[in-house]
Nucleic acid binder design. Structure first.
Lengths: 215, 215
DNA sequence: ACGGTTCAAGCACATTTGTGCTAAAAAGAT
DNA sequence: ATCTTTTTAGCACAAATGTGCTTGAACCGT
């Protein structure tokens, strides 16, 4: 009966426009009119696919979360498929961690958008739920990765949590710096930092009892 | 001749109002009218002390940078005054690193404001200069700290840079998580993560050549 | 051919924002 | 008491934003 348009594809186009605007001009410029312009549509058209500005933003947040989570899951299955302690395994781990960083154009856009939404979620309740989902999804993958990289710490669950959080913090910090101070953060520095962190993961275990950090 | 008002004190009051608004409602809500209301003034009064909205925001950014930098410098002189490898030294280092985290109300406000401005500076050219100053100031202290904690790496300057960046990234990531996911980030987790990182600093040096991350 | 449904576009209105400008109030100096 | 300068307050205007509502346009099934 009606004019048939692939609604989901259209929505995706609008979301891509949102991503471009956030990456170049920030979340606060992602208004309906700006998004419509960027997508080559009228405001009314955008509003036809998204009931409100909030729905558009929440959905865009969800899309970028899914993209990142999917990349991480795929990279993790690669890691799992490789023999541990092989050079390919180490490279696969670095590739996995690199999914967090703005190493190419697409990753940079996702990183910008992801950061912007997570920070906005601190203030805007509509984004809260997706922010929590985002954190759970990423923490799950990083947690599994840490468990794989520290097989000898099976008992010390507390240490696993600490190390997962530590890796997560380092990743987010690196991503932040790569976005905010790109002139100081070359690819090499990123790689060196990640390598150093991985070294610290496998080595630091037996040294815990040497120092007196028991408080 | 004129009505004498401590202009600098008034500016400071306005800046404090900006901080409160950013911490509770985000940078985008820090408009002249909101700030004036929060400060108990009229828009015209705020505009008397700050020529424009941009000047107000840039000055607020500068103030928070100075506050953080001052705290770091003071904490670092404490570290320098203590005998290395003593328990007090370790505590002083943890205290220094804790200055980055929202461990109390004042630190939390500063952390919020600092994060908000740094991210805004990616987009808004007026904030660029202060953002660069902020990064230089903090990187300087963290760099000196890393040099102190890794005395044996005197030659490997590249490694020092990597470790400084790694510590900085971990700190910023921890701060982010503490602000955005406070329910998952208790004080204890923060402390454990920082302790683990410090352990990894002093230990990881001799193990670099064991693995094949040379490529 | 045509009707009904979906899509696209736009108008109108209330809010909010930054800023230029004017003017009243306050208070020390004379 | 009066003058002068600072301080405070407010108005007005243009620009931008979200949203309710209306109007065409397009097109598939009958």
């Amino acid at each position: 009966m009606p004019k048939i348009v692939d609604a989901e594809a259209r929505r995706q186009e609008v979301v891509e426009a949102v991503f471009r605007i956030i990456a170049s001009d920030g979340l606060e410029r992602a208004s309906l009119r700006e998004v419509a312009d960027e997508a080559g549509l009228a405001v009314g058209s955008v509003r036809h696919y998204f009931a409100s500005s909030d729905e558009l933003l929440v959905h865009s947040f969800a899309v970028v979360i899914d993209r990142i989570a999917t990349r991480l899951e795929e990279a993790f299955t690669v890691v799992e498929s490789l023999d541990q302690a092989s050079a390919e395994h180490d490279n696969a781990v670095l590739t996995l961690l690199g999914q967090f960083l703005p190493l190419d154009e697409e990753l940079a856009v996702d990183a910008c958008v992801w950061m912007a939404f997570r920070h906005a979620a601190r203030i805007r309740p509509v984004l809260e739920e997706e922010a929590a989902r985002s954190h759970r999804a990423v923490a799950a993958v990083v947690g599994r990765l840490v468990m794989r990289l520290m097989p000898d710490a099976g008992t010390g669950q507390e240490r696993l949590v600490t190390e997962a959080e530590r890796l997560l913090a380092t990743l987010d910090g690196l991503c932040m710096h790569a976005l905010l101070q790109p002139e100081w953060m070359t690819f090499e520095v990123c790689r060196d930092v990640l390598s150093a962190h991985l070294d610290s993961l496998v080595v630091s275990r037996p040294t815990v009892n040497l120092k007196a950090h028991r408080e």
